[in-house]
Design a protein around this nucleic acid. Structure first.
Lengths: 147, 147
DNA sequence: TCCATTTGTATCGTGCGCGACCTAAAATGC
DNA sequence: GCATTTTAGGTCGCGCACGATACAAATGGA
């Protein structure tokens, strides 16, 4: 439909695909997330907290592969929205831990429907998505090499 | 190394992978692009022009899957850097066509080395990258559904 | 022809993302 | 104990990305 044929440039062996797929995912999520008043990065961050509450800014940043300078303001916005609370660690005065509020936890129940809707839209089956995920993680870890 | 184990949430069947891989690619490119004084989106845009000079803003935006409101200022920055020239179409007074300058065209020769360096870093072989690219395009086109 | 609609670009406001830089708290060395 | 270094967060400036909005040029009917 719009698979404008892949530029034959070697550059685009994977970069172009990841670049455009990333934006497509963002766009596909946004109508669902708009109902919740969230952005995609905010949503991703919440999913990490749903799995394990009370993580440090640093821990979240490492999992997301982003800098604390990105995450700090994002988490502050989540706090302003009433989904989380930031608080200084008792044991380490430098660290800030992020905790879900009742409201933030409640959103967790809305996630599965969004997820299944997204998966359906991709038109890929589970095994293909598995394969894709595996390749993406290997790609990422290769590029991060060491770090 | 840092494959912090994949969150078991269904949400993360592919979204998390694309999200973090996308940032990893950006980060891996940046040392190379810094030498050229370019950002990653600027570089991607130039690769499209190297394949076909004189494209309209709209055409480029569609290929990149982004809005003209993103591309307009990006192309203006490329113009300020001296890599392209923007000019009104003769046949359609609304359209703006983007042309490479000598300087912008010259950068094309630096691309292959960057590309091969990137590919090597991924630690994936050609057939895996092919497979990845195919899955990513199918994913993207599925999510864009119709549009 | 004239007017309504569509199309192509541009502008603005908000949020993401990074690097450079800053501060305070903890860890380390003597 | 005290000075030095490392670590955790935060701030700032810039560029990307989108939706909302504006406006001029093109198009399509009546």
């Amino acid at each position: 439909m719009d698979s404008f044929d892949i530029p034959k440039q070697a550059d685009d062996l994977f970069c172009f695909g990841v670049y455009t797929a990333s934006h497509a995912i963002n766009r596909a999520y946004s109508p669902h997330l708009k109902k919740l008043g969230l952005t995609y990065p905010q949503y991703i961050t919440l999913t990490l907290l749903w799995e394990c509450d009370g993580q440090k800014i640093n821990t979240l940043a490492k999992k997301l592969g982003m800098e604390t300078s990105t995450l700090t303001p994002l988490v502050k916005r989540l706090e302003n929205l009433g989904h989380v609370i930031r608080s200084r660690s008792q044991t380490d005065g430098r660290a800030v831990e992020v905790f879900l509020t009742e409201q933030g936890l409640a959103l967790k129940h809305k996630a599965p429907e969004i997820t299944s809707c997204m998966i359906e839209q991709t038109r890929l089956d589970k095994s293909e998505l598995q394969k894709l995920q595996t390749l993406l993680f290997r790609l990422r870890d290769g590029l991060n090499g060491g770090r």
